[in-house]
Design a protein around this nucleic acid. Structure first.
Lengths: 211, 211
DNA sequence: GAGAAACCGTACCATGAGTACAGTTTTGGA
DNA sequence: TCCAAAACTGTACTCATGGTACGGTTTCTC
Protein backbone atom coordinates (compact mmCIF):
# COMPACT_ATOMS: atom_id res chain seq x y z
CA UNK A 1 0.00 0.00 0.00
CA UNK A 2 2.36 2.69 1.23
CA UNK A 3 6.02 2.95 0.52
CA UNK A 4 8.43 1.93 3.21
CA UNK A 5 9.83 5.43 3.46
CA UNK A 6 7.08 7.73 4.62
CA UNK A 7 6.54 11.09 3.01
CA UNK A 8 9.34 13.47 4.01
CA UNK A 9 8.60 14.73 7.49
CA UNK A 10 8.64 18.33 8.52
CA UNK A 11 10.02 19.16 11.93
CA UNK A 12 6.51 19.23 13.29
CA UNK A 13 5.87 15.69 12.19
CA UNK A 14 8.93 14.50 14.09
CA UNK A 15 7.77 16.24 17.27
CA UNK A 16 4.32 14.77 16.84
CA UNK A 17 5.83 11.33 16.54
CA UNK A 18 7.99 11.88 19.62
CA UNK A 19 4.98 12.94 21.66
CA UNK A 20 3.01 9.91 20.52
CA UNK A 21 5.81 7.52 21.40
CA UNK A 22 6.35 8.96 24.87
CA UNK A 23 2.61 9.09 25.52
CA UNK A 24 2.12 5.50 24.43
CA UNK A 25 4.80 4.23 26.79
CA UNK A 26 3.28 6.25 29.63
CA UNK A 27 -0.25 5.07 28.89
CA UNK A 28 0.84 1.44 28.82
CA UNK A 29 2.54 1.86 32.17
CA UNK A 30 -0.04 3.89 34.08
CA UNK A 31 -3.17 4.11 32.02
CA UNK A 32 -4.56 7.00 30.03
CA UNK A 33 -6.33 8.72 32.86
CA UNK A 34 -3.22 8.80 35.00
CA UNK A 35 -0.92 9.98 32.23
CA UNK A 36 -0.44 13.71 32.63
CA UNK A 37 0.26 15.95 29.71
CA UNK A 38 2.81 17.71 31.87
CA UNK A 39 5.04 14.69 32.18
CA UNK A 40 4.74 13.90 28.49
CA UNK A 41 5.83 17.37 27.43
CA UNK A 42 8.57 17.36 30.07
CA UNK A 43 10.04 14.21 28.57
CA UNK A 44 9.48 15.44 25.03
CA UNK A 45 11.16 18.73 25.88
CA UNK A 46 8.47 21.15 24.83
CA UNK A 47 5.89 23.34 26.47
CA UNK A 48 2.20 22.93 27.00
CA UNK A 49 1.52 25.39 24.22
CA UNK A 50 3.60 23.27 21.90
CA UNK A 51 1.59 20.22 22.82
CA UNK A 52 -1.75 21.85 22.15
CA UNK A 53 -0.44 23.10 18.85
CA UNK A 54 -0.22 19.46 17.73
CA UNK A 55 -3.20 17.98 19.53
CA UNK A 56 -6.49 19.71 20.13
CA UNK A 57 -6.94 17.92 23.47
CA UNK A 58 -6.15 14.68 25.25
CA UNK A 59 -8.73 12.78 23.25
CA UNK A 60 -7.08 13.79 19.98
CA UNK A 61 -3.84 12.45 21.38
CA UNK A 62 -5.55 9.15 22.18
CA UNK A 63 -7.00 8.93 18.68
CA UNK A 64 -3.65 9.40 17.01
CA UNK A 65 -2.02 6.98 19.42
CA UNK A 66 -4.49 4.27 18.47
CA UNK A 67 -4.11 4.95 14.76
CA UNK A 68 -0.36 4.71 15.10
CA UNK A 69 -0.53 1.54 17.16
CA UNK A 70 -2.92 -0.19 14.78
CA UNK A 71 -0.87 0.79 11.73
CA UNK A 72 2.32 -0.50 13.32
CA UNK A 73 0.70 -3.78 14.25
CA UNK A 74 -0.84 -4.17 10.81
CA UNK A 75 2.57 -3.73 9.25
CA UNK A 76 4.08 -6.30 11.60
CA UNK A 77 1.38 -8.84 10.80
CA UNK A 78 1.73 -8.19 7.07
CA UNK A 79 5.40 -8.93 7.38
CA UNK A 80 5.16 -12.01 9.59
CA UNK A 81 2.28 -13.75 7.85
CA UNK A 82 3.52 -12.72 4.43
CA UNK A 83 6.93 -14.19 5.22
CA UNK A 84 5.30 -17.47 6.24
CA UNK A 85 3.55 -17.73 2.90
CA UNK A 86 6.81 -16.99 1.12
CA UNK A 87 8.55 -19.82 2.93
CA UNK A 88 6.00 -22.55 2.30
CA UNK A 89 3.30 -23.24 -0.25
CA UNK A 90 1.48 -25.46 2.20
CA UNK A 91 -1.00 -23.26 4.10
CA UNK A 92 -0.58 -25.17 7.37
CA UNK A 93 3.21 -25.06 7.23
CA UNK A 94 3.11 -21.39 6.30
CA UNK A 95 0.95 -20.61 9.35
CA UNK A 96 3.16 -22.67 11.65
CA UNK A 97 6.21 -20.81 10.38
CA UNK A 98 4.48 -17.48 10.92
CA UNK A 99 3.50 -18.39 14.46
CA UNK A 100 7.10 -19.30 15.19
CA UNK A 101 8.19 -15.96 13.75
CA UNK A 102 5.59 -14.18 15.87
CA UNK A 103 6.80 -15.96 19.00
CA UNK A 104 10.41 -15.04 18.21
CA UNK A 105 9.50 -11.43 17.55
CA UNK A 106 7.79 -11.21 20.92
CA UNK A 107 10.69 -12.92 22.65
CA UNK A 108 13.16 -10.49 21.11
CA UNK A 109 11.55 -7.44 22.69
CA UNK A 110 14.22 -6.09 25.04
CA UNK A 111 12.08 -5.56 28.15
CA UNK A 112 9.21 -7.80 27.28
CA UNK A 113 6.09 -6.67 25.46
CA UNK A 114 5.25 -3.14 26.57
CA UNK A 115 1.53 -3.92 26.48
CA UNK A 116 -1.40 -3.86 24.10
CA UNK A 117 -2.87 -0.41 23.66
CA UNK A 118 -6.25 -1.86 22.71
CA UNK A 119 -6.36 -3.77 25.99
CA UNK A 120 -5.32 -0.68 27.92
CA UNK A 121 -8.09 1.34 26.32
CA UNK A 122 -10.60 -1.46 26.84
CA UNK A 123 -10.07 -1.19 30.57
CA UNK A 124 -10.70 2.55 30.49
CA UNK A 125 -13.49 2.69 27.94
CA UNK A 126 -15.46 5.43 29.63
CA UNK A 127 -12.59 7.83 29.10
CA UNK A 128 -12.78 7.68 25.33
CA UNK A 129 -15.26 8.88 22.74
CA UNK A 130 -17.13 6.66 20.33
CA UNK A 131 -14.68 7.22 17.49
CA UNK A 132 -11.80 5.71 19.45
CA UNK A 133 -13.84 2.76 20.65
CA UNK A 134 -14.94 2.11 17.05
CA UNK A 135 -11.32 2.26 15.96
CA UNK A 136 -10.21 -0.36 18.47
CA UNK A 137 -13.17 -2.61 17.74
CA UNK A 138 -12.57 -2.48 14.00
CA UNK A 139 -8.89 -3.26 14.33
CA UNK A 140 -9.64 -6.33 16.44
CA UNK A 141 -12.21 -7.45 13.89
CA UNK A 142 -9.67 -6.97 11.10
CA UNK A 143 -7.04 -9.03 12.89
CA UNK A 144 -9.50 -11.81 13.60
CA UNK A 145 -10.62 -11.79 9.96
CA UNK A 146 -7.01 -12.05 8.84
CA UNK A 147 -6.43 -15.13 10.97
CA UNK A 148 -9.75 -16.59 9.87
CA UNK A 149 -8.77 -16.31 6.20
CA UNK A 150 -5.56 -18.18 6.90
CA UNK A 151 -7.43 -20.89 8.79
CA UNK A 152 -9.89 -21.28 5.92
CA UNK A 153 -6.99 -21.98 3.62
CA UNK A 154 -5.66 -24.60 6.00
CA UNK A 155 -9.01 -26.28 6.60
CA UNK A 156 -9.54 -26.62 2.84
CA UNK A 157 -6.50 -28.90 2.71
CA UNK A 158 -6.54 -30.44 6.19
CA UNK A 159 -10.03 -31.04 7.56
CA UNK A 160 -9.90 -30.43 11.31
CA UNK A 161 -10.33 -33.42 13.63
CA UNK A 162 -12.51 -32.12 16.38
CA UNK A 163 -15.38 -30.04 14.99
CA UNK A 164 -14.09 -26.60 15.94
CA UNK A 165 -15.48 -23.25 14.83
CA UNK A 166 -12.75 -21.54 12.82
CA UNK A 167 -13.96 -18.10 13.86
CA UNK A 168 -13.34 -19.09 17.46
CA UNK A 169 -9.89 -20.44 16.63
CA UNK A 170 -9.05 -17.17 14.87
CA UNK A 171 -10.28 -15.20 17.91
CA UNK A 172 -8.23 -17.44 20.15
CA UNK A 173 -4.92 -16.22 18.82
CA UNK A 174 -5.78 -12.62 19.69
CA UNK A 175 -7.07 -13.71 23.09
CA UNK A 176 -3.96 -15.69 23.90
CA UNK A 177 -1.61 -12.89 22.89
CA UNK A 178 -3.50 -10.30 24.92
CA UNK A 179 -3.91 -12.65 27.86
CA UNK A 180 -0.26 -13.69 27.79
CA UNK A 181 0.88 -10.07 27.68
CA UNK A 182 -1.07 -9.46 30.87
CA UNK A 183 0.37 -12.57 32.50
CA UNK A 184 3.90 -11.66 31.43
CA UNK A 185 3.55 -8.20 32.88
CA UNK A 186 1.80 -9.26 36.07
CA UNK A 187 4.30 -12.01 36.84
CA UNK A 188 7.21 -10.00 35.49
CA UNK A 189 8.17 -12.96 33.30
CA UNK A 190 8.43 -11.84 29.66
CA UNK A 191 9.01 -15.41 28.43
CA UNK A 192 5.40 -16.47 28.95
CA UNK A 193 4.17 -14.65 25.88
CA UNK A 194 6.49 -16.59 23.60
CA UNK A 195 5.57 -19.88 25.28
CA UNK A 196 1.85 -19.27 24.92
CA UNK A 197 2.18 -18.53 21.22
CA UNK A 198 4.21 -21.68 20.77
CA UNK A 199 1.61 -23.69 22.66
CA UNK A 200 -1.10 -22.28 20.40
CA UNK A 201 1.09 -23.38 17.50
CA UNK A 202 1.22 -26.93 18.90
CA UNK A 203 -2.55 -26.95 19.20
CA UNK A 204 -2.95 -25.81 15.60
CA UNK A 205 -0.80 -28.75 14.60
CA UNK A 206 -2.96 -31.03 16.72
CA UNK A 207 -6.13 -29.65 15.18
CA UNK A 208 -5.13 -29.90 11.55
CA UNK A 209 -2.10 -32.10 11.03
CA UNK A 210 -2.96 -35.52 9.59
CA UNK A 211 -2.52 -38.26 12.15
CA UNK B 1 -11.27 -22.11 55.63
CA UNK B 2 -13.90 -19.54 56.52
CA UNK B 3 -17.54 -20.22 57.10
CA UNK B 4 -19.98 -19.36 54.34
CA UNK B 5 -21.69 -16.80 56.50
CA UNK B 6 -19.21 -14.10 57.33
CA UNK B 7 -18.86 -12.79 60.83
CA UNK B 8 -21.81 -10.53 61.70
CA UNK B 9 -21.17 -7.16 60.11
CA UNK B 10 -21.40 -3.86 61.86
CA UNK B 11 -22.82 -0.94 59.95
CA UNK B 12 -19.33 0.18 59.07
CA UNK B 13 -18.53 -3.11 57.42
CA UNK B 14 -21.56 -2.76 55.18
CA UNK B 15 -20.54 0.75 54.13
CA UNK B 16 -17.01 -0.48 53.47
CA UNK B 17 -18.38 -3.23 51.28
CA UNK B 18 -20.61 -0.77 49.41
CA UNK B 19 -17.67 1.53 48.73
CA UNK B 20 -15.57 -1.38 47.47
CA UNK B 21 -18.30 -2.59 45.14
CA UNK B 22 -18.93 0.84 43.65
CA UNK B 23 -15.21 1.52 43.33
CA UNK B 24 -14.58 -1.81 41.62
CA UNK B 25 -17.24 -1.16 39.00
CA UNK B 26 -15.83 2.31 38.38
CA UNK B 27 -12.25 1.09 38.14
CA UNK B 28 -13.21 -1.62 35.65
CA UNK B 29 -14.98 0.97 33.51
CA UNK B 30 -12.52 3.85 33.60
CA UNK B 31 -9.37 2.68 35.27
CA UNK B 32 -8.05 3.42 38.73
CA UNK B 33 -6.39 6.70 37.86
CA UNK B 34 -9.55 8.13 36.40
CA UNK B 35 -11.81 6.96 39.20
CA UNK B 36 -12.38 9.88 41.53
CA UNK B 37 -13.13 9.44 45.17
CA UNK B 38 -15.72 12.16 44.78
CA UNK B 39 -17.86 10.13 42.42
CA UNK B 40 -17.53 6.99 44.53
CA UNK B 41 -18.74 8.73 47.67
CA UNK B 42 -21.49 10.46 45.71
CA UNK B 43 -22.84 7.08 44.59
CA UNK B 44 -22.29 5.53 48.00
CA UNK B 45 -24.09 8.43 49.66
CA UNK B 46 -21.48 9.53 52.14
CA UNK B 47 -19.00 12.35 52.55
CA UNK B 48 -15.30 12.56 51.94
CA UNK B 49 -14.69 12.39 55.66
CA UNK B 50 -16.67 9.19 55.77
CA UNK B 51 -14.55 7.70 53.02
CA UNK B 52 -11.26 8.52 54.71
CA UNK B 53 -12.60 7.07 57.91
CA UNK B 54 -12.67 3.67 56.18
CA UNK B 55 -9.64 3.98 53.89
CA UNK B 56 -6.43 5.76 54.69
CA UNK B 57 -5.96 6.79 51.05
CA UNK B 58 -6.68 5.67 47.51
CA UNK B 59 -4.00 3.01 47.68
CA UNK B 60 -5.62 1.40 50.71
CA UNK B 61 -8.85 1.30 48.73
CA UNK B 62 -7.03 -0.46 45.89
CA UNK B 63 -5.50 -3.00 48.25
CA UNK B 64 -8.85 -3.95 49.75
CA UNK B 65 -10.43 -4.08 46.30
CA UNK B 66 -7.85 -6.59 45.13
CA UNK B 67 -8.19 -8.70 48.26
CA UNK B 68 -11.95 -8.78 47.80
CA UNK B 69 -11.68 -9.60 44.11
CA UNK B 70 -9.19 -12.42 44.65
CA UNK B 71 -11.23 -13.91 47.48
CA UNK B 72 -14.41 -13.86 45.40
CA UNK B 73 -12.66 -15.51 42.48
CA UNK B 74 -11.06 -18.13 44.69
CA UNK B 75 -14.46 -19.04 46.06
CA UNK B 76 -15.90 -19.29 42.54
CA UNK B 77 -13.09 -21.57 41.40
CA UNK B 78 -13.42 -23.72 44.51
CA UNK B 79 -17.07 -24.18 43.72
CA UNK B 80 -16.72 -24.84 39.99
CA UNK B 81 -13.76 -27.19 40.06
CA UNK B 82 -15.00 -28.87 43.22
CA UNK B 83 -18.35 -29.52 41.56
CA UNK B 84 -16.60 -31.08 38.58
CA UNK B 85 -14.80 -33.53 40.81
CA UNK B 86 -18.06 -34.37 42.55
CA UNK B 87 -19.71 -35.20 39.25
CA UNK B 88 -17.04 -37.49 37.83
CA UNK B 89 -14.28 -39.66 39.23
CA UNK B 90 -12.41 -39.47 35.96
CA UNK B 91 -10.04 -36.48 36.17
CA UNK B 92 -10.43 -35.59 32.50
CA UNK B 93 -14.23 -35.75 32.61
CA UNK B 94 -14.25 -33.76 35.83
CA UNK B 95 -12.17 -31.00 34.23
CA UNK B 96 -14.33 -30.95 31.11
CA UNK B 97 -17.43 -30.62 33.27
CA UNK B 98 -15.86 -27.81 35.24
CA UNK B 99 -14.90 -25.96 32.07
CA UNK B 100 -18.46 -26.24 30.86
CA UNK B 101 -19.67 -24.88 34.19
CA UNK B 102 -17.17 -22.04 33.96
CA UNK B 103 -18.34 -21.18 30.46
CA UNK B 104 -21.98 -21.20 31.60
CA UNK B 105 -21.20 -19.05 34.61
CA UNK B 106 -19.55 -16.48 32.37
CA UNK B 107 -22.41 -16.62 29.89
CA UNK B 108 -24.96 -16.05 32.65
CA UNK B 109 -23.49 -12.70 33.68
CA UNK B 110 -26.25 -10.19 32.89
CA UNK B 111 -24.20 -7.55 31.05
CA UNK B 112 -21.19 -9.66 30.17
CA UNK B 113 -18.11 -9.98 32.32
CA UNK B 114 -17.42 -6.64 33.99
CA UNK B 115 -13.66 -7.13 33.58
CA UNK B 116 -10.71 -8.63 35.38
CA UNK B 117 -9.36 -6.40 38.12
CA UNK B 118 -5.92 -7.97 37.84
CA UNK B 119 -5.78 -7.06 34.15
CA UNK B 120 -6.96 -3.54 34.90
CA UNK B 121 -4.25 -3.09 37.50
CA UNK B 122 -1.66 -4.65 35.22
CA UNK B 123 -2.25 -1.89 32.71
CA UNK B 124 -1.77 0.76 35.39
CA UNK B 125 1.05 -0.81 37.34
CA UNK B 126 2.89 2.40 38.07
CA UNK B 127 -0.06 3.65 40.10
CA UNK B 128 0.21 0.91 42.69
CA UNK B 129 2.68 0.05 45.40
CA UNK B 130 4.67 -3.13 45.61
CA UNK B 131 2.24 -4.79 48.02
CA UNK B 132 -0.61 -4.62 45.53
CA UNK B 133 1.51 -5.82 42.64
CA UNK B 134 2.70 -8.75 44.77
CA UNK B 135 -0.91 -9.53 45.62
CA UNK B 136 -1.96 -9.71 41.98
CA UNK B 137 1.09 -11.72 40.98
CA UNK B 138 0.54 -14.25 43.75
CA UNK B 139 -3.12 -14.71 42.91
CA UNK B 140 -2.26 -15.42 39.27
CA UNK B 141 0.39 -17.91 40.37
CA UNK B 142 -2.13 -19.59 42.65
CA UNK B 143 -4.70 -19.93 39.90
CA UNK B 144 -2.15 -21.33 37.49
CA UNK B 145 -0.98 -23.81 40.13
CA UNK B 146 -4.55 -24.92 40.69
CA UNK B 147 -5.03 -25.67 37.01
CA UNK B 148 -1.63 -27.34 36.83
CA UNK B 149 -2.58 -29.73 39.63
CA UNK B 150 -5.74 -30.70 37.78
CA UNK B 151 -3.79 -31.27 34.56
CA UNK B 152 -1.26 -33.44 36.39
CA UNK B 153 -4.10 -35.66 37.51
CA UNK B 154 -5.35 -35.94 33.95
CA UNK B 155 -1.94 -36.60 32.41
CA UNK B 156 -1.36 -39.43 34.88
CA UNK B 157 -4.30 -41.27 33.33
CA UNK B 158 -4.26 -39.95 29.75
CA UNK B 159 -0.78 -39.29 28.41
CA UNK B 160 -0.98 -36.24 26.14
CA UNK B 161 -0.49 -36.75 22.40
CA UNK B 162 1.60 -33.81 21.36
CA UNK B 163 4.43 -33.20 23.84
CA UNK B 164 2.98 -30.11 25.56
CA UNK B 165 4.25 -28.44 28.72
CA UNK B 166 1.49 -28.72 31.31
CA UNK B 167 2.56 -25.49 32.98
CA UNK B 168 1.92 -23.72 29.71
CA UNK B 169 -1.46 -25.39 29.30
CA UNK B 170 -2.41 -24.31 32.81
CA UNK B 171 -1.29 -20.74 32.05
CA UNK B 172 -3.28 -20.86 28.84
CA UNK B 173 -6.63 -21.03 30.61
CA UNK B 174 -5.91 -17.81 32.48
CA UNK B 175 -4.64 -16.18 29.32
CA UNK B 176 -7.69 -17.15 27.32
CA UNK B 177 -10.12 -15.95 29.94
CA UNK B 178 -8.37 -12.60 30.34
CA UNK B 179 -7.92 -12.22 26.60
CA UNK B 180 -11.52 -13.16 25.87
CA UNK B 181 -12.79 -10.68 28.44
CA UNK B 182 -10.92 -7.95 26.61
CA UNK B 183 -12.26 -9.10 23.25
CA UNK B 184 -15.81 -9.33 24.59
CA UNK B 185 -15.61 -5.82 25.98
CA UNK B 186 -13.88 -4.30 22.97
CA UNK B 187 -16.29 -5.83 20.45
CA UNK B 188 -19.25 -5.44 22.79
CA UNK B 189 -20.07 -9.12 22.28
CA UNK B 190 -20.31 -10.88 25.68
CA UNK B 191 -20.72 -14.30 24.05
CA UNK B 192 -17.09 -14.58 22.99
CA UNK B 193 -15.88 -15.35 26.49
CA UNK B 194 -18.10 -18.42 26.73
CA UNK B 195 -17.06 -19.56 23.26
CA UNK B 196 -13.36 -19.24 24.00
CA UNK B 197 -13.66 -21.29 27.16
CA UNK B 198 -15.57 -23.94 25.25
CA UNK B 199 -12.91 -23.97 22.54
CA UNK B 200 -10.23 -24.43 25.19
CA UNK B 201 -12.33 -27.33 26.45
CA UNK B 202 -12.33 -28.90 22.98
CA UNK B 203 -8.58 -28.55 22.82
CA UNK B 204 -8.16 -30.21 26.20
CA UNK B 205 -10.17 -33.12 24.83
CA UNK B 206 -7.96 -33.19 21.75
CA UNK B 207 -4.83 -33.15 23.87
CA UNK B 208 -5.76 -35.89 26.29
CA UNK B 209 -8.70 -37.94 25.06
CA UNK B 210 -7.68 -41.36 23.73
CA UNK B 211 -8.04 -41.56 19.99
C1' DG C 1 12.99 38.12 2.81
C1' DA C 2 8.15 37.10 3.60
C1' DG C 3 4.85 34.12 5.27
C1' DA C 4 3.60 30.04 7.34
C1' DA C 5 4.70 26.46 10.63
C1' DA C 6 6.27 25.41 14.99
C1' DC C 7 6.71 26.67 18.82
C1' DC C 8 7.28 29.69 23.93
C1' DG C 9 5.43 32.40 28.18
C1' DT C 10 2.15 33.72 31.11
C1' DA C 11 -1.96 33.99 33.25
C1' DC C 12 -6.05 31.88 34.45
C1' DC C 13 -10.10 28.47 35.84
C1' DA C 14 -12.10 23.99 37.43
C1' DT C 15 -11.60 19.62 39.36
C1' DG C 16 -9.95 16.14 42.30
C1' DA C 17 -6.61 14.02 45.85
C1' DG C 18 -5.51 14.54 50.27
C1' DT C 19 -5.07 16.80 55.16
C1' DA C 20 -6.77 18.63 59.46
C1' DC C 21 -9.82 18.77 62.90
C1' DA C 22 -13.87 19.77 65.51
C1' DG C 23 -18.54 18.41 65.89
C1' DT C 24 -22.65 15.05 65.55
C1' DT C 25 -25.27 10.90 65.18
C1' DT C 26 -25.69 5.94 65.55
C1' DT C 27 -24.92 1.59 67.54
C1' DG C 28 -23.96 -2.19 70.53
C1' DG C 29 -23.12 -3.77 74.93
C1' DA C 30 -22.97 -3.57 80.30
C1' DT D 1 -31.03 3.13 80.05
C1' DC D 2 -26.78 5.07 79.68
C1' DC D 3 -22.18 5.35 77.91
C1' DA D 4 -18.38 4.81 75.07
C1' DA D 5 -16.89 3.64 70.85
C1' DA D 6 -17.96 3.50 66.00
C1' DA D 7 -19.46 5.79 62.17
C1' DC D 8 -19.90 9.33 60.35
C1' DT D 9 -20.70 15.10 58.87
C1' DG D 10 -18.94 19.93 57.84
C1' DT D 11 -15.71 23.23 56.79
C1' DA D 12 -11.71 24.91 55.26
C1' DC D 13 -7.69 24.41 53.43
C1' DT D 14 -3.21 22.91 49.92
C1' DC D 15 -1.48 21.16 45.78
C1' DA D 16 -1.27 18.98 41.21
C1' DT D 17 -3.23 18.59 36.77
C1' DG D 18 -6.24 19.24 32.57
C1' DG D 19 -7.54 22.60 29.82
C1' DT D 20 -8.27 27.51 27.80
C1' DA D 21 -6.75 31.92 25.94
C1' DC D 22 -3.74 34.68 23.58
C1' DG D 23 0.16 37.37 22.32
C1' DG D 24 4.92 36.92 21.17
C1' DT D 25 9.06 34.53 19.08
C1' DT D 26 11.83 31.43 16.51
C1' DT D 27 12.57 28.41 12.56
C1' DC D 28 11.80 26.45 8.31
C1' DT D 29 10.57 26.80 3.39
C1' DC D 30 9.64 28.66 -0.84
Amino acid sequence: MSTVLETPKGKGEATRERILEIAEAAVLAKGFGATSIEEVIAEAGLTKSGFFYHFRDKNALAREMVRRYVATNDRLFDEIFGRGQQLSDDPLQAFLISLKLLAETMADLPNGHPGCLIASICYQERLFDREIRDLTAQSVRDWNARFRTILDGIAAVYPPREPVDLDDVADMLSCIVDGAIIMSKTLNDPGRLERQIMLFRSLVKLMFAPN
